[in-house]
């Protein structure tokens, strides 16, 4: 099963002892573009962060290409939410992109010219090569998002996890990102993308995970992305489950 890029089983995550996602079990087929869709607070970002060991997991297992994340970091690239960093930071676009190579460069060693060339190529690929030497606060929201995407691209990973890359970006950026996603698919790479816009799910993705605390449905877009499933995903939360969860939090049960 080592060709499965991302395999999640029984994953449960609790924030302050209040479960955010429940018992997630998904296997993502290689070479697909996967959309993760669900209402606010459904735990979409939590799912990605838990996969990447960024937040403690209550129970369950996550495997990348059949191995633990620590062993295959180089094959997995992460595009965090744009709001996650301070865009006032004194750094140029190209330096941010080069961060994707730090792991490869190794400790102590400086960033060399060829690394910057790789970074420049990635910026060209996302269509903002001319902005390489801008300080990042002087970029528009869409351009900042593209910088993050370029940072993931330089890694030459096989699996890309993206946290809302389409949030509040201009049309040109959206088109650019979609082009990159299509290119990834042609190259046999896999992308898991958290997505908000239900209108475009069918156009952008071929596999979809409907998430609302638990996996409501997961599978090929044609089969799974149905009105009935969407109703289940967005049609409110399970009140009793919520009550129980809340009671559990109050009594500090370790879930």
């Amino acid at each position: 099963m080592t060709d499965i890029p991302l395999s999640i089983s029984d994953l449960t995550v609790a924030y302050h002892r209040k479960p955010v996602i429940w018992d997630i079990a998904v296997n993502i087929p290689p070479g697909t573009l996967v959309g993760v869709v669900g209402p606010n607070g459904a735990g979409k970002s939590t799912l990605l962060k838990a996969c990447l060991d960024l937040i403690p997991v209550t129970s369950g297992r996550v495997e990348f290409f059949g191995k633990a994340y620590q062993e295959v970091r180089h094959r997995v690239a992460y595009v965090p939410q744009r709001e996650s960093v301070d865009w006032d930071f004194p750094i140029l676009a190209i330096d941010v992109v080069a961060m994707g190579l730090y792991r490869q460069i190794g400790w102590f060693l400086p960033v060399r010219k060829r690394h910057l060339q790789t970074a420049q190529a990635a910026l060209d690929r996302v269509g903002i090569g001319d902005l390489a030497n801008r300080q990042i606060s002087q970029l528009s929201g869409g351009q900042q998002q593209r910088v993050f995407l370029a940072r993931a691209l330089v890694q030459q990973a096989d699996l890309y996890l993206m946290d809302e890359p389409f949030a509040a970006v201009d049309a040109a950026t959206e088109t650019a990102i979609v082009e990159i996603l299509k290119q990834m698919k042609t190259d046999g790479k896999t992308a898991v993308v958290i997505h908000h816009d239900l209108q475009t799910v069918r156009d952008y993705f071929d596999y979809v995970i409907l998430l609302n605390m638990r996996v409501v449905a997961a599978g090929a877009v044609d089969e799974v992305f149905t009105n009935e499933n969407l109703q289940k995903t967005y049609g409110g939360r399970l009140t009793l489950l919520d009550q129980a969860t809340e009671a559990m939090r109050r009594r500090e049960i370790k879930t």
Binding site: D10, W22, D23, L240, A244, I253, T255
Partner: peptide
């Protein structure tokens, strides 16, 4: 309830019910 409402696999629900029964 879990089987009805969340469509969880009936093999996996026991553990959750175990947690919930106490409250």
């Amino acid at each position: 309830y879990l089987v009805d409402q969340t469509g969880m696999d009936s093999n996996r629900i026991h553990e959750h019910a175990e947690r919930f029964e106490h409250i």
